[in-house]
Design a binder for these strands. Structure first.
Lengths: 350, 350
DNA sequence: TGCTCCTGTCGAATCGATTCGATCGCCGTT
DNA sequence: AACGGCGATCGAATCGATTCGACAGGAGCA
């Protein structure tokens, strides 16, 4: 029991060569039933549970593991329904192919990039972190690990799975504009992971790391021109509520008639803040989000939002990763988004 | 660029032996600065990003990957705040040691157990699935993979990280008993993963797969004796609400004065159902949960619940796994729980 | 009967690094 | 001047399986 048996030991016990034993475990049809049975019997006697995955991986050159990068600490990623749904879409495809999903958090421990080098990955998906200068991305690239980026930066040799963020918010903005809104403000997701929050000035804006954040802002500006924007420190309801209070707890003439949040989660916070301040939605204030996540804690309000096919995005990313591993060269993909008008947007108050 | 360079190639280029080159990359102090530099220079020229993790893993016998099993589909696991917090605790420890976390979902694709055999794991943690006859568990056990089980079955040679479920609900039950409640009903988490819901009869109860479910029920019965119980099909707010309606939408004399839910999530659903039915909490009905999760969508109600140290549980499980990989033999651990009395429990109505 | 073809099994090379014990200088010591 | 000691580097075995081409033996066919 102390030392685990090897394939060679099983082969010897069964009186066949290691090659044949290997054939048996790989389920080759070219092996006689009798032989097969002898090998399996020997394996059973010795308590051999099948080929060592490490050795098999080395020989095959593939480990059967694909890494998914979530930028922040796992806990925050898990709190984000979009990230969760994305991961679910990914696992759906990977699981069907018998490939494991390895979670990589951005800031867990310093040696993050060190860790990445030590783990056998067939490919990696940058799921919720579109950093353009991510050291981990560089690390994996020079290592030759196939890479897929979701809503991330355009990097040569990296497959990009994208959604049409800008067009989505543009349609949303047009919807609000048609309703007569002229004073809208945008509540953005974090521009960087430095915990900063508050109004965004030009300097800060140039430091925006995330593509989706930029694009969702530009879509609004396509319609309204330059628009005041505040940044949330993280993509959480409480953050949205805090930002919402700051945005709305001002004299009425300075208060926006509509707030466009860059995510449904943030929008939920804004709704909360509005309720706390006694503002009626949509009579006094319109609120819009992004994602089309099903937030069961929203109550009966149906959020006006831009629906993105999050799970499809995850599946596409995983499929691209699988294709890369198989030696293919999948093309970049941009998935469509659709405007969904709910009960939180209405005519601008006079 | 087509073929990736090997350590041997780098060594040759630098004019040293592979052994020495290996020493360089493993950061050994026993190598002359000059040599080290030559090797690194050669690596840079060839575009060598460090030793192949697969080969290194094979030699070392460790892959640097630990698997976490979540019973259900990932999406549902992620929706459960307790599971999420547990995973976060796990990654906290693993990340600090540069070990990756591989997520394994129970039902993703049929070849689940097949998949497990193909993935290099140094150890596995059964996080949210305490099946006693899980084929995956057997598979890993015969393979010799060190195992840690969280609130799972007692299996020989497997480390168990537990909490004192029974004592927790016992104290909770006593609290309600002291308040005068005599007619309580229990809303349990799923006894099995078969999507069944509704009242639990004796036959069904004997088929309960999950230890924590059983223990949390027994704790209540320690105080109240046999108690009617209904089962939720999954651990979700909507399930809790549905079960809550079934439980509460009955003639007043047959309605329980207190509902003990086996999780905060389910309890939140019961609160919702109570509100829908116009029942005041705690005046007309007391509601209690389990876990001590921070459910931000609960509003201002503070749930009476049993607080368990979920993140500590995760850290302990991960630490135990690390110890096992290192060859140690960590002991089983039972973490304490504490009763937290909130605003949802009060004297039984007369 | 002899020849070909086919099928099941085997040998041996290979995947790419790690690591232990051995070796080779070089320096200090007596 | 010879020798002991020490530290840097090297050789070679090893981790455990996969896989391709070779091989042997039996079946089919003429």
């Amino acid at each position: 029991m102390s030392i685990r048996p090897t394939l060679a030991a099983v082969a010897a016990r069964a009186g066949v060569s290691p090659s044949t034993a290997s054939l048996v475990f790989s389920g080759s049809p070219r092996v006689t039933p009798g032989t097969k049975e002898r090998v399996l019997a020997a394996a059973a006697t010795l308590g051999y549970a099948g080929p060592d995955p490490l050795a098999a991986s080395l020989r095959r050159g593939r480990s059967g593991v694909i890494g998914a990068f979530v930028g922040e600490r796992l806990l925050y990623a898990f709190r984000d329904p979009v990230a969760v749904q994305l991961l679910d879409g990914i696992t759906e495809v990977l699981g069907a192919h018998g490939v494991g999903l390895l979670l990589l958090a951005g800031d867990t421990g310093r040696p993050s990039t060190e860790q990445i080098g030590r783990i056998p990955l067939d490919a990696a998906i940058f799921a919720t972190c579109g950093l353009e200068d991510d050291p981990a991305l560089d690390q994996l690239r020079t290592r030759g690990v196939p890479l897929v980026v979701v809503e991330g930066p355009v990097v040569d040799g990296v497959v990009l799975i994208d959604i049409d963020d800008r067009r989505g918010t543009r349609e949303l903005a047009r919807h609000l504009h048609d309703l007569g809104h002229r004073h809208v403000e945008v509540l953005t997701m974090p521009l960087r992971l430095d915990g900063r929050r508050g109004p965004i000035d030009a300097a800060r804006r140039t430091r925006a790391h995330y593509r989706d954040v930029r694009h969702r802002l530009e879509g609004v500006e396509d319609v309204f021109g330059p628009v005041p924007a505040v940044e949330a420190a993280s993509n959480a309801v409480a953050e949205g509520a805090a930002a919402g209070r700051a945005l709305l707890d001002v004299p009425a003439h300075r208060r926006p008639t509509a707030v466009i949040a860059q995510s449904d989660v943030l929008a939920a916070g804004v709704l909360q803040a509005a309720a706390d301040l006694g503002l009626r939605v949509p009579e006094d204030l319109s609120v819009a989000g992004f994602d089309g996540a099903d937030l069961h804690w929203l109550g009966d309000a149906r959020l006006t939002t831009v629906v993105q096919p999050t799970d499809e995005k995850g599946r596409a990313a995983a499929q691209a990763a699988m294709d890369l591993v198989a030696g293919g060269s999948p093309r970049d993909l941009t998935l469509p988004v659709t405007l969904r008008i709910g009960t939180t947007s209405g005519p601008a108050p006079s």
